[in-house]
Nucleic acid binder design. Structure first.
Lengths: 193, 193
DNA sequence: CAATAACTGACGAACGTTCGTTAAATTTGA
DNA sequence: TCAAATTTAACGAACGTTCGTCAGTTATTG
């Protein structure tokens, strides 16, 4: 399917240069056609962008939910650390997560509202599933903390900081070091001793 | 000084729309002149951008270094938490920090190298002063952890996550909640008990 | 008067977009 | 079955607009 090729190229350039910095001419050249031909598959730049956005959202959401669906939920230490590693793994070989992160934080102004809706949707779901896991662990005495929400927010903070390092990421060593540091302190902060 | 006004407007639009999304026409209109008049003060768009970047860098660096210079270094709990609050305060009423964050993570492609040099410079200095503080606290037994570097990285992770929330930031309550959550877990993770 | 800073006017280039056309593939109907 | 009709996908050319930039001219100011 040719429109999938276009979306793939669009994903690449939107991620690399942002909405305004990516041109239809570039994208078209990547798939070996002229920019006008894109209009046979999409209504315009916004349409192309929003379709790429929704694909990325679906990938992001399903991957994360799937992880916590397949986890036995008895071992918070391995489950949570595994999630961080999953994020890193996804980020390094899945362009969509990079795209999602960039557009989440710096959306094109005229599409800000549209994007924010998608972001809130995904965030609520991830937060909800995480919070219920933390509640289970709290009830079982596997972790300690004020409330499940507190633990969720703190963990999401670790996730965010790792993602920032991934975006910035030129140094693989530094990433590992930061991951280990954040994780060590976080785990010590929520584990029973 | 008129060129300061131009830089101020440029800062605003670069922050809001990114390098490619900000136009000289917009910036000029903001200060009440035509875009061609900007060339009486700057060589071009890149020159304007880089001057704004260097101003922002200086503000960012001096503010952070100044904070740790004026801290008595006897009370890590208040010192570190105060730093987080400083970041929040700066971010909310200082456009330069927002600009710096955006351009750090998503620089315009053709200026990427230039920007990266500035970023590394500032990051090394902040990391160095933080690391020496943590070393002092470790030696005094005020905090516990593997190495000073580990603690530094973990704390910088908390800073990053707060900044991300600030960028994304539409909800003041959520920001406070996330700050409290991250801080509570972080502090429990490094404090003696 | 000299210098600085703003202006007007114009430039080539690139932008997203629309048009009309062509050639190939697919569907239709006798 | 086979020609006719329709759809699909790409194209070149051009649209109007905006972009950053440069040159020349007027206004301001000390």
């Amino acid at each position: 399917m040719k429109s999938d090729e276009i979306k793939e190229a669009a994903l690449k350039y939107f991620t690399l240069h942002g909405y305004e910095g990516a041109s239809l001419a570039q994208i078209a050249e990547e798939v070996g056609m002229k920019k006008q031909s894109i209009y046979a598959h999409f209504k315009g730049k916004d349409d192309l962008f929003l379709q790429v956005l929704r694909d990325a959202k679906e990938t992001e959401l399903s991957t994360k939910l799937q992880y916590f669906g397949n986890v036995d939920a008895q071992h918070p230490e391995t489950d949570l650390y595994g999630f961080l590693q999953l994020i890193i793994h996804l980020f390094q070989r899945n362009e969509q997560l990079k795209f999602w992160l960039r557009m989440t934080f710096f959306p094109p102004a005229h599409l800000e509202e549209e994007i924010e809706k998608e972001v809130l949707d995904i965030e609520e779901q991830v937060q909800a599933v995480l919070e219920s896991k933390f509640q289970d662990w709290l009830d079982a005495g596997a972790v300690v903390g004020d409330t499940a929400r507190t633990l969720t927010y703190a963990f999401l903070g670790v996730v965010d900081s790792i993602m920032l390092e991934l975006v910035y990421g030129n140094d693989e060593n530094r990433l590992t070091e930061k991951l280990e540091a954040s994780w060590a302190v976080f785990w010590r902060g929520i584990s029973q001793r």
